[in-house]
């Protein structure tokens, strides 16, 4: 494109101003990521002074093909996907419905609702975890009382892995629905009111207005939210750490990588540091996220082109 802001030396200005951002990106993000792919071919422990051996694809072979452990890894991979699918869709739906409702000027105390639903985001994973551990306290906590009322009992986060996993999904959605809602709200506010008025003139009902006006015009927010949620949930594991720790039947890939790399796998105090192996696991996660993320993005872009022209 034509550059309008001078020639000669002053042509360099955009480059100079671009430099810091690009440099940060190369140094902090891209460089280390490339290094990860190199580490994944070694047996590095992450300790200063330790010898590092080049072991080729051994880490990948172990991660993907060695005994029951690799099957457990695939389970973790599957769990990562399940987690992502549930979190993304449910959070998306709740965020959308809440935003549409809160965009209606007839609803009272909208500010209160908006603040309340966004609040967990501000509190952060640690407090979210504490609040819910308390709420799900199995020795007579509120949820235990509710279960009791229906003649049920449960260990919640300390019980069967599947149940604990479901609770983490619920809490993850509870925690991050606010972001989705906010992005939708800002998108809704960019829709000009004339569009609604025109639809009303045509005698459209609420659902038709939503389908024909709100939804297509919301496309940019839809895309942002979907992409954020998918990538975020594929890589999220903080709540697993805070709520249940590293437990059989609940691990997701992100947590597995941290636990292996920093010696926290078995809760045993002598488990070894295996950062090379952890690096291989992160490369697997990268490929997974890349494939899913890119296909979703392509799909979204096509859809956007179709709708927005």
């Amino acid at each position: 494109m034509n550059y309008h802001f001078g020639r000669g030396k002053s042509r360099l200005t955009p480059y100079l101003l671009l430099l810091p951002g690009i440099a940060f990106y190369f140094i902090i993000s891209l460089g280390p990521s490339l290094a990860t792919s190199i580490f994944s071919l070694t047996d590095t422990t992450g300790l200063k002074g330790a010898t590092i051996n080049w072991i080729g694809l051994d880490n990948y072979k172990e991660f993907l093909f060695m005994g029951q452990a690799s099957k457990d890894n695939f389970d973790a991979l599957g769990r990562t996907l399940i987690f992502s699918v549930f979190v993304t869709t449910i959070q998306f739906l709740f965020g959308l419905v809440t935003a549409v409702i809160l965009n209606n000027p007839k609803i009272r105390a909208r500010n209160f609702f908006r603040t309340l639903f966004f609040m967990p985001v501000i509190l952060g994973a640690v407090i979210q975890g504490l609040i819910w551990s308390l709420f799900l306290f199995p020795l007579g906590g509120p949820m235990a009382k509710l279960f009791e009322f229906f003649g049920l009992r449960s260990e919640f986060l300390g019980g069967s892995p599947t149940e604990a996993f479901i609770w983490v999904i619920i809490i993850q959605i509870w925690a991050n629905m606010g972001i989705t809602m906010m992005i939708f709200l800002s998108g809704l506010q960019t829709i000009p009111s004339e569009m609604y008025e025109a639809a009303e003139m045509d005698g459209a009902n609420n659902w038709q207005v939503f389908k024909n006006v709100t939804w297509p015009l919301l496309t940019p927010s839809v895309n942002t939210n979907l992409l954020l949620n998918i990538i975020g949930s594929l890589q999220a594991w903080q709540l697993f750490l805070v709520l249940i720790g590293y437990r059989n039947g609940t691990q997701v890939l992100g947590y597995l990588i941290y636990a292996v790399g920093f010696g926290q796998t078995s809760g045993s105090v002598t488990s070894s540091f295996r950062q090379g192996y952890a690096a291989a696991a992160s490369m697997v996660l990268f490929v997974l996220v890349l494939v899913i993320g890119l296909s979703v993005q392509t799909f979204l872009r096509r859809r956007e082109e179709r709708i927005m022209g």
Binding site: I28, G261, A278, G293
Partner: peptide
Amino acid sequence: IALFLPPALIPQFRL
């Protein structure tokens, strides 16, 4: 692409 990169904890630490 960077959007999909997992956090490079280990090399970042060394950096």
